[in-house]
Amino acid sequence: MTMDRLLFGDNQFFGINHMSEQKARAQAMRFQDIEVVLEVLDAAYEAGLRTFMCTTHERIAEICDAARLRPERYPELVFFPGMPYAHKYANAVTERGMVGAVRQFVPDEGILSSVVRGGRSLARKDVEGLITLLVDAEMRMFEGLPTPVVFLQNVVVDLLLGLEFTEAFAVFARHVRERYGAEPGFITMNLPSLVQALEDAGIEEPVVCANINKIGFRMSGGIDAYLDVLEQHRCRAIAMSVFASGAIPPREALEWIADIPAVESVVFGASSTAHIESTVRIARELWGQVSDPVRNARRNGSVLDMRHHQLGLASLMGDE
């Protein structure tokens, strides 16, 4: 599975801005209307972006509906869902407690009820069952849409990583592969220790999305440890927060990332056509292409000169 060079993210749609709460609020107001969100998505698609990396925020369901209703609008678009939408769970835990929250989100609460009420001990298959039920509940909104990579969100990944509950990663990976034919992905703020833990759990060369930026913002373990892991090609990396929420100018940020060959993709968010286009322009200068024409052509069913594309891709990807 090849991943596009440039992926479009969704933080801007949900009032998430790591630099300014005022800006975050302005964005939340602007994107209240789903049509405005879709207009920006249209602009991203128009600019050549073909992957939408998103959370499982309930409003994403509206975007999924739009993509299903009008397949001609985004014929080549693929989704990289990241689950769960953490605040949804955090608020539920505050309101209903740990067990109450799981109950709220597990559609079939048979497993949990029999354990909680029956007082029997929890078997491994119960935990595995719970994890897969939670994944399925989050995936429901993407039904009928291509989701070649399915991510576990960073708060959950980093919590499980800290607890050393690494078996959950293996369960997630297995389920995502078997049930959705997708590659499991992991978002983290602790890339070096996560890659080690995933290797220990038997997940080789995992797709990992992490902050990778020139100033080392939110790169726990340190920028050097990150670069070591990347140089050893121990993961397929997607870089996020490349601009460190605006602390690094776009060209400088992308040029720095382009020098790290192990970074396969960059995910970025933008709320204006101008920003999207300028980022795509810089990325094209650096990598030639922002999406994978081979995969997109396959999806469209058109005939391609594969030899030509392989040559093209080889020159784009440098030594890869």
């Binding site: 790591h18 630099m19 300014s20 708060v155 980093d158 919590l159 990583l161 800290g162 703020m189 602790n190 220790s193 100033i215 080392g216 913002f217 939110r218 790169m219 726990s220 373990g221 340190g222 460190a244 929420s245 605006g246 602390a247």
Partner: peptide
């Protein structure tokens, strides 16, 4: 900005 002022931590969760 916090982005400029923050020091790295051992293990980041939230």
């Amino acid at each position: 900005y916090t982005t400029d002022l923050s020091n790295p931590v051992n293990h980041y969760v939230r």
